[in-house]
Design a protein around this nucleic acid. Structure first.
Length: 269
DNA sequence: ATGGCTGGTAGAACCAGA
């Protein structure tokens, strides 16, 4: 008699929250309504010592791996299931809190990243932040090419690679987040591990798929000038274990929203 | 209308986001 291994399902979410302290009400709503097992946050904008852990623990998320800094950036992984082997990589060697990684008991590694936005001008000779973004990608490519084992790479990549990832390819082709040089780097990053883009696995191009809408357009829902800046990528061996995926666009219209919507993927291991 | 808004921290004619 053989015994069949029990299937484990895990619902994993990623959300650029644009200040976790400013979003207490909607992050609670999200967790109660969607019930993810694990939530990866970017742009927490809080130091670890005053991270609002109580909210998460009250909702059953007793495992928190934090990497914050004052004012800007900041990432965290919050989970109902145990996490270990946490690390915090600094691909810029400048102290910015843009990565946190963990391993689950089933062996899955989760890497949560907040890639630099890159400033206004897509030219590193006049905009150092754009150069920083390009260098960040180069170092991520080196790191990614050496990865072994099943990995989920999630976060705010700050690049919308496909024409159907932006509201107007023509109007954004020279706008940071959709320039050819950024897309080339993102493509090299993807190839460096054979990453599978879960968003496009479930919503193949040329279907519209956005995760971010600027605060500046108050009529954002009507004009729908969105971009797909947030991504969930998996190792090739995990692609078939992603069984559902969605971008929760409705969260963009909740009270005091983040400008990014959450991404949710369910896995069956 | 190639502008618009939001958050943190300071307490700005700020910075950063993208």
């Amino acid at each position: 008699m053989s015994t069949k291994a029990k299937t484990q399902t895990l619902k994993i979410a990623s959300w650029n929250i644009n200040s976790v302290r400013a979003r207490l009400e909607i992050v609670e709503r999200f967790l109660v309504e969607q019930q993810p097992d694990i939530l990866c946050l970017q742009e927490t904008k809080v130091i670890n010592g005053v991270f609002p852990e109580g909210l998460f623990r009250r909702l059953g998320y007793n495992h928190l791996v934090l990497h914050g800094q004052p004012m800007h950036h900041g990432v965290a992984i919050i989970s109902k299931v145990p996490m270990r082997d946490d690390d915090r990589l600094d691909w810029q060697a400048n102290g910015e809190a843009r990565h946190v990684g963990v391993r689950l008991d089933n062996g899955l590694r989760i890497e949560n990243v907040y890639i630099p936005a890159g400033g206004e001008e897509p030219d590193r000779t006049i905009n150092a932040k754009f150069g920083q973004k390009l260098d960040f990608f180069e170092r991520m490519i080196d790191w990614s090419s050496k990865l072994t084992g099943p990995t989920l790479l999630v976060g705010d990549f700050n690049v919308a690679p496909l024409e159907c990832d932006v509201w107007s390819h023509k109007q954004l082709v020279n706008v940071v987040s959709h320039t050819a040089v950024e897309i080339e780097l993102m493509d090299r990053l993807q190839k460096s591990h054979g990453w599978v883009d879960i968003g496009r696995k479930f919503y193949p191009a040329p279907e519209r798929l956005y995760t971010w809408w600027s605060y500046r357009a108050l009529d954002w829902a009507k004009t729908d000038r969105g971009r797909r800046l947030d991504h969930m990528w998996v190792s090739p061996s995990l692609a078939d274990q992603a069984v559902s995926h969605q971008v929760l666009e409705s969260a963009r219209s909740w009270a005091r929203p983040s400008d990014h919507a959450p991404l949710i993927t369910e896995f069956a291991f």
